[in-house]
Amino acid sequence: MTAETAVHAAHEVAHGAADAAQHGHGPETPAQYIVHHLGHLTDGMFNYDTFIFSLLAGLVVVWVLGLAARNATVGVPGRFQALIEILVEWVEDQSKQIVHGDRSFIAPLALTVFLWVVFMNTLDLLPLDMLPMFGQAAGIEYLRVVPTADLNCTLGMALGVLTLMLYYSFKIKGAGGFMHELFCAPFGSHPLLWPANLLLNIIEFVAKTVSLGMRLFGNMYAGELIFMLIALLGATATWWGFALHVLTGSAWAIFHILIVLLQAFIFMMLTLVYIGQAHEHH
C-alpha cells in the first residue's frame, strides 16, 4: 500500500465512521477504533500531542548530542561516542558532497533533522495503544503519539526548509541575482519569458516544500494505519486473530525499522539537496 492510497483510505474510513465515533468507552466498532486513533489531542487550532511528542523527541536529540559532546574524549571512544562520531562523520560527508559553501550551520542542521525525525518516527514502534491508554487513564480522550504522522509537523518542518532555501538563495546570489534567476531561468532572459519563468520557479518551490512534507507524513501515516489495521486482528480476541496479529505485527514492525531510518535519511538528504540547490547559480 502506497502512502497516498493509505492516506486516502484512512480519510474514507474517517468520514464513514465520523458519526459512529463518539466519545466514551466500552465496545467499539473497528471503524470507531481507527477513527479514535486518528483523533488528535487538540483544541481545533493546535495539536498538543504532536507538539508535545515532537518537543520531547527534539529534547532527547539535544540531550543525546549534548551528552556525547560533553563526554567526548580525544582518546579511544566508547560505544556511545563511536556511534555519535560515525553519525556526525556520515552527515558531514553527505553535506560536503551536496552543499558547496559554508556548511557550519547546514551540516549540524542536517544531523539534527535526521536524529529528530528518527526519534519521532521511532515512536511508531511503541505498542499502538500503550500511550493512548495511559492518556485515557489520565483523562485524555484522544492522543496521537507519532508527530511525523501529523501533516502539521512534517509540513512545518518543510516550511522551515523552504525558509532556509530562500535565505540561502538571497545570501549566496544576492537579491538581484536571485531575482534574475527567478525571472530568467530556466527558459531564458527574454522579457516575454519572465512570467513563465517566475511561475515555474514558484511551482518548483511549492512542489519541493509540499513533497518534502507529504512524503514523510504519508509514509508514517500509512505505517501507523497499518499498525491500526493489524491491531484490529488482535482485537478480535480469538486465537487466530492473536496469532495473525503477532505474525503480521512483528513483520511490519521489523520492516518499519527500515522505514523509520529510511524516511529520516530521505528527509535529511532532501533538506541538504534543496539547500544545496539554493547555493548553485543557473
Binding site: L125, M133, H245, I254
Partner: peptide, 22 residues
C-alpha cells in the same frame, strides 16, 4: 472489538521487535 486483547498482542509484537533488534 476488544481493546485488552489487541493491547496484549501489541505488547507481544513489541517484545518480538525487541528480541529481533537484540
Amino acid at each position: 472489538m476488544n481493546l485488552n486483547a489487541t493491547l496484549v498482542a501489541q505488547f507481544v509484537v513489541f517484545f518480538v521487535l525487541a528480541w529481533f533488534t537484540m
